[in-house]
């Protein structure tokens, strides 16, 4: 505790601090010797802590199942071939395939065909899925229904990479797979959701076969806009019977998209 005869150690702020209005970059932090002032140092640590916690967060299967069932969807919980988070981070190949028990689970369902298979996957931030995925889907479903498109049971996939949707979509005999997955957390965006769609999903496809909508979060691409973009991509993909680089033009935009 500081007393009046011992004044607090004062650090002058950088005179260009007003330039922070132009960027989210960590400018004008001030310095103590060559070091960061205590507050700036702890601010950074907190942002990193949020990102690290996001990496190790897990899908809230109970809450997600309840929410999805409320939307009139049936839900299936499945796992990739990954056993631990440490393995997940080092073996992307194992995160792309369902484990044997999960395959069996789908096969015993004897699925019919569906237009769209929907997957919620933890990816690198399960918390992003917990927070945002149901909200986006709730806005997307009416558009899908109005277009007469059927959906397969929603899969909650643990320890999963984007390409697990190929495995799931093909087993569910879906025309198109749509996966919502937690993106790699940034210091300013630990809970950002990505959505990827693939026409005629099957194991072995690579990134050029997919289309991606990223940065879905209230401070980024908001739910309604994300749902609208996804629906547009889904409709175009099914109409033109393709996805990926062929669906998007050179500038990464669909015809008519600005």
């Amino acid at each position: 505790m500081s007393t009046s005869d011992k004044p607090a150690f004062h650090i002058p702020s950088d005179p260009w601090i007003s330039l922070r209005a132009h960027t989210d970059a960590r400018i004008a932090l001030g310095r103590v010797g060559a070091g960061l002032p205590t507050n700036a140092s702890l601010d950074f640590k907190l942002a990193h802590a949020h990102a690290r916690d996001a990496i190790y967060s897990t899908l809230d299967n109970a809450a997600l199942t309840t929410a999805l069932e409320t939307l009139g969807l049936s839900v299936l919980s499945l796992q990739s071939q990954v056993q631990t988070r440490q393995e997940y981070l080092q073996r992307p190949d194992l995160g792309r395939r369902l484990n044997a028990a999960s395959r069996k689970k789908i096969e015993t369902l004897l699925p019919g065909t569906a237009d769209v298979s929907i997957v919620f996957a933890d990816g690198l931030s399960a918390e992003a899925v917990n927070l945002h995925a149901v909200h986006v889907l709730a806005q997307l479903l009416p558009a899908l229904a109005a277009a007469g498109l059927s959906t397969a049971p929603v899969v909650l996939a643990d320890q999963a990479r984007v390409a697990i949707a190929d495995d799931i979509g093909s087993l569910l005999k879906a025309e198109l797979s749509l996966i919502f997955i937690g993106e790699r957390p940034g210091l300013t965006s630990p809970h950002s959701l990505g959505a990827y769609l693939t026409y005629h999903p099957k194991p072995g496809l690579t990134d050029e076969s997919r289309n991606c909508i990223s940065n879905i979060r209230p401070e980024g691409l908001v739910y309604a806009d994300a749902a609208q973009k996804i629906f547009y991509l889904v409709a175009e993909s099914l109409r033109r019977k393709l996805s990926g680089v062929m669906l998007k033009g050179e500038g990464g935009l669909l015809a008519g998209e600005k």
Binding site: T23, D24, A25, R26, I27, L29, R31, G33, A34, G35, L36, A40, F44, A47, H48, R184, G186, L187, T188, S189
Partner: peptide
Amino acid sequence: GVPGADDIMLNYQSTSFHDALYVRQ
């Protein structure tokens, strides 16, 4: 040299202007 070591475009952490001053010092 990245402001506060936080690259807000590439979303990764590199070294800051401060870090370079520290090494020089």
